[in-house]
């Protein structure tokens, strides 16, 4: 018996080493994949990046020139999606966590939200086409696209907001209510300010998704080509993801525009990171003095 035990020690170390190696390898693969993608994009796209590329509209049937209308369009659509998704999502989360009493109705709503999160984005696109573009007659426009993207990111924002609201200590609510402050004032003055940094953190994911999605805006907002900049929310816009799709699949000279395609991808990544950065800065500002 004694001998068997000592004999098994090297074997146990061996298994441990195998396991650690696997875990380390997984982490390495992910890092390499991410690094590889970023390197590949930069390597192929950096050559076309110039001041003109980001400030000029496309020319020569989109084989030359810049992508400025698409950058602007993506920024408009993303801001529009935030403007619609964030208030609606936060309001829903407040209802679910602060007002609703647990029961069958709430369970159904939660299931609904989870299902919404699993709906393919092209379905959102068709939904937006049917409701906003055709039924409400908004046409293919910033408004229709923002609404569609806003609904697309709702589950993410509701989920993040619910988590953030739940993490505000119950004792804060009790303290406020015990002073004879109403429930709404308690939520507005105590719960929400303390939850906002967390809400933003979670919403960043949704924001990135809104900027990067192609399918939802294909039928609802994105123009194949327009050199004209939008003058109202009822105008069609170019958008980076759709522009990439167009150049890579339906352009007039797909092979010749490869560098432009990669350049556009590079800009899209930069825009998403830029919007995230703004959210992170706002969050950092709100977090000051907020700790418990």
């Amino acid at each position: 018996m004694q001998e068997e035990k000592t004999n098994s020690m090297p074997w146990r170390y061996f298994r441990q080493n195998v396991f650690f190696t696997c875990v380390r390898a997984s982490a390495l693969v992910i890092t390499l994949a991410l690094g590889g993608i970023i390197f590949y994009i930069i390597y192929n796209g950096i050559s076309v990046i110039s001041w003109d590329f980001i400030t000029q509209p496309p020319t020569d049937a989109m084989t030359k020139g810049g992508i400025m209308p698409a950058i602007l369009g993506t920024i408009y659509l993303t801001l529009g999606a935030i403007a619609i998704g964030l208030p609606l999502g936060i309001a829903s989360a407040i209802y679910l966590t602060e007002y609703a009493r647990e029961g069958r109705v709430i369970r159904l709503i939660r299931i609904g939200i989870n299902c919404l999160a699993g709906v393919p984005s092209v379905v959102f696109g068709l939904f937006g086409l049917g409701i906003f573009v055709i039924f409400l007659k908004f046409g293919s426009s910033i408004l229709s696209g923002s609404l569609t993207l806003g609904f697309l990111i709702l589950p993410t924002i509701i989920g993040a907001s619910e988590e953030a609201l739940k993490s505000v200590p119950q004792t804060f609510r009790e303290a406020s209510l015990s002073l004879g402050v109403s429930k709404w004032q308690t939520i507005y003055r105590i719960v929400l300010p303390n939850a906002l940094p967390g809400i933003l953190t979670g919403s960043i994911l949704g924001i990135g998704r809104a900027a990067g999605e192609t399918a939802p805006i294909m039928f609802t907002a994105a123009a194949f080509f327009t050199a004209k900049l939008p003058s109202s929310i009822f105008d069609e816009v170019m958008a980076l993801p759709y522009h990439i799709y167009v150049l890579a699949t339906a352009g007039t000279n797909i092979e010749a525009t490869r560098p432009i395609q990669y350049g556009t991808v590079l800009v899209l990544v930069a825009v998403v990171l830029g919007i995230d950065l703004i959210a992170i800065i706002i969050r950092g500002y709100m977090r000051r003095n907020k700790r418990w």
């Binding site: 004792t171 009790e174 303290a175 004879g180 109403s182 003095n289 700790r291 418990w292």
Partner: peptide
């Protein structure tokens, strides 16, 4: 809400607001 204005409460754990 009206009652709580007249009957105040202090809790087991100190719970000041993060203000």
């Amino acid at each position: 809400v009206e009652i709580r204005r007249k009957i105040g409460m202090v809790f087991q754990k100190p719970n000041p607001f993060p203000k």
